[in-house]
Design a binder for these strands. Structure first.
Lengths: 150, 150
DNA sequence: CTACACCTTCCATCCGGCTGGAATGTCAAG
DNA sequence: CTTGACATTCCAGCCGGATGGAAGGTGTAG
């Protein structure tokens, strides 16, 4: 498939896909005779894996190492294994923190809800927040396959 | 207390504390006659809250809005409440995703561990990863109060 | 033919979140 | 008094992770 289709199917922009290739996160795909990139099904999996791993807080560089390990079935390096184990520990901590902060936020939310919502004095700020929220959701939540596709 | 002590007690650098003040995340503290910032105990709480909230994926701008809500007991804006509720939903999704990816990574880790660790061929990369790991831990995990304090 | 969607590369820019460093001030200890 | 640790402001730069846009090639449909 071409880059556009891959983008549509993963929710990752063509721009970003090329960028991932540049930084070594995606292997250079075959090219059609005209020079267009030609991806196989595996690229879809790989991109989804990247998105998920990214959502857990791994950097793109770290993800690249993991993918190397995954694809070669080879230990590129002892440190990759350590990285993974460390990250697992981090994840457990993070999950716990999330739960705790979730509760904290829940309290605040309740309070917010009990107060008069008509006193919005700063529409600019509000707008900013609304946008930020959208962005955050878009960038962090793993898209199954459907997406608002401009 | 002065900025240095606050930094030591929270694990947030003095530099970063001033930066937070600049962007409105921390209220400008009192000043000693000599101009030095003079913080109260609440600053410690506030910084810890910021770190936790940040660990859940909120941006600093979003955190600023929440803190405003928290401190004024006022609904700055309807959208802040929406932000919080949305974020709670996000958190639940995120926690689930983390668990799932955690398992995925655990599998990879096991695989990594079963393979020969002696074949490390790319020390530069390894170094990078090691550093990245340190950074990641430092920046994301909420410090209780102890920390490796350069 | 030409319009149009789609692809290519390349280079610049943006954003969030810091961080470094210069130039200067304050103050307690030796 | 000077030295040293700490503080101040201000401005520049960095990193990760993209994103924008120019300038151009391709290929099918009308």
């Amino acid at each position: 498939m071409r880059i556009g289709e891959l983008a549509a199917r993963t929710g990752v922009s063509a721009k970003t896909i090329r960028y991932y290739e540049d930084i070594g996160l995606l292997p250079p795909p075959e090219r059609e005779p005209n020079g267009y990139r030609d991806y196989g099904e595996d690229a879809v999996d790989r991109l989804r894996f990247i998105r998920d791993a990214q959502a857990t807080g791994l950097t793109l560089t770290e993800i690249a190492s993991i993918l190397e390990l995954r694809e070669e079935g080879q230990p590129t390096c002892e440190h990759v294994a350590e990285l993974l184990e460390q990250h697992l520990k981090d994840l457990d901590v993070q999950i716990a923190t999330l739960q705790a902060t979730r509760d904290h936020l829940a309290t605040l939310t309740e309070r917010a809800r009990r107060l008069d919502p008509a006193t919005c004095t700063d529409p600019v700020r509000c707008q900013t927040i609304a946008e930020a929220t959208d962005l955050r959701v878009a960038r962090r939540v793993a898209q199954p396959q459907a997406h608002r596709h401009s």
